[in-house]
Computed example of a mutant assay.
Amino acid sequence: MDFAGAYSSSNLIYLLQGFAVTLKVAIVAIVLSFIFGCILGILRYAKIPVVSHVVALVVEVIRNLPLILIIFFTYFALPEIGIKMSVTMAAIAALTVFESAMIAEIVRGGLNSIPKGQIEAARSSGLSYIQTLWYIILPQALKKMIPPLVSQFISLLKDTSLAIIISLPELLHNAKGVYSGESGAKYIIPILLLAGFMYFIVNYLLSILARRLEKRLDPDRSAAKQLANTTENLL
């Protein structure tokens, strides 16, 4: 192992460039998949005739496909029907499609967790279905959705590494470029350790952010969870 050679300024800059691409793809895919996932989840929850069934079918099909197949299809198959995208756009599109289906289920589960009595009370007070959904159900459901949503976003960030198969110049792609050279055998462990550390830092920060948001939005639930964890540790 050659840590000094592996961590030369040129190698570090090359890795950081790849990490910047990873973060760019992840952030754009997170924003888009959250938007589309919320729309699909709400459509499933609303149980609109035909529409909800079609959305449910699409979501279930996508959720049960491997992400790597969706990436392949987006980059290699879509050009056959005239839809051509750059490597970066193909990666973002594939991740957005896959993660939207995952988030749709999280949103639907969060909405279904709200007691039906609250919906009936809101409707009886004169609120429309849309108003009830927007002002009563969604704010409460969001508090319950934060942990699984952040967990899904962390998975999305890690899944960007699968785009190496279409040569997206992300972190692992550039890491492979560093240790594939003449001195590669001495660089493999140092480079992969550094790449793993970069992933860990971002994901750990996301986890901290999720805990803080959960405490701020639902302090009672957060305190109860903390008490339960303390009790479990004592036992």
Results as ranks from 00 to 15, higher is better:
205 L>D: 03
72 F>E: 00
139 P>C: 11
120 E>K: 12
199 Y>F: 14
102 M>E: 08
58 V>P: 05
61 V>T: 12
175 A>G: 15
145 M>A: 02
167 S>D: 06
225 K>E: 11
109 G>A: 15
124 S>T: 12
222 S>Y: 15
205 L>A: 15
56 A>P: 07
228 A>R: 13
119 I>M: 13
179 Y>S: 11
71 I>Q: 06
80 E>W: 05
131 Q>R: 14
84 K>A: 15
142 L>D: 01
71 I>H: 08
171 L>G: 03
64 N>W: 02
139 P>W: 09
114 I>D: 00
201 I>H: 07
168 L>H: 03
163 A>E: 01
93 A>T: 14
14 Y>G: 01
197 F>E: 07
136 I>C: 02
222 S>D: 03
13 I>E: 08
36 F>C: 06
191 I>A: 01
109 G>L: 09
198 M>E: 06
139 P>V: 09
13 I>S: 08
229 N>I: 10
227 L>E: 14
4 A>Y: 03
119 I>K: 13
51 V>S: 08
61 V>S: 00
235 L>F: 13
172 L>V: 09
235 L>M: 13
186 K>V: 09
213 L>T: 04
203 N>E: 08
51 V>F: 14
16 L>V: 09
61 V>I: 15
89 M>N: 15
19 F>N: 02
111 L>Q: 07
95 L>C: 08
137 I>Y: 06
94 A>R: 01
24 K>R: 12
206 L>Y: 06
12 L>E: 04
74 T>K: 10
189 I>M: 14
54 V>D: 01
19 F>S: 09
113 S>G: 11
60 E>K: 09
120 E>Q: 13
190 P>M: 10
187 Y>R: 05
221 R>G: 15
132 T>R: 00
46 A>H: 00
63 R>G: 10
132 T>A: 12
234 L>T: 04
117 G>P: 08
25 V>Y: 08
211 R>F: 06
146 I>Q: 07
199 Y>P: 04
98 F>T: 00
90 A>R: 06
98 F>E: 01
223 A>Y: 12
61 V>L: 14
52 S>P: 04
153 F>W: 15
80 E>G: 12
103 I>L: 15
175 A>Y: 00
136 I>T: 06
108 R>V: 02
53 H>C: 00
157 L>K: 02
44 R>L: 07
117 G>T: 10
78 L>I: 03
179 Y>H: 10
84 K>E: 14
63 R>N: 11
203 N>R: 03
213 L>H: 00
218 D>K: 10
202 V>K: 07
114 I>L: 03
225 K>L: 11
100 S>C: 04
96 T>Y: 10
225 K>W: 05
227 L>G: 02
149 L>P: 00
209 L>V: 13
97 V>P: 01
6 A>Y: 11
125 S>I: 12
158 K>P: 06
210 A>L: 05
28 V>I: 15
10 S>E: 14
174 N>H: 08
180 S>R: 13
180 S>C: 09
72 F>H: 01
189 I>E: 09
205 L>Y: 10
67 L>N: 07
171 L>P: 02
201 I>P: 10
173 H>C: 03
19 F>R: 04
151 S>F: 11
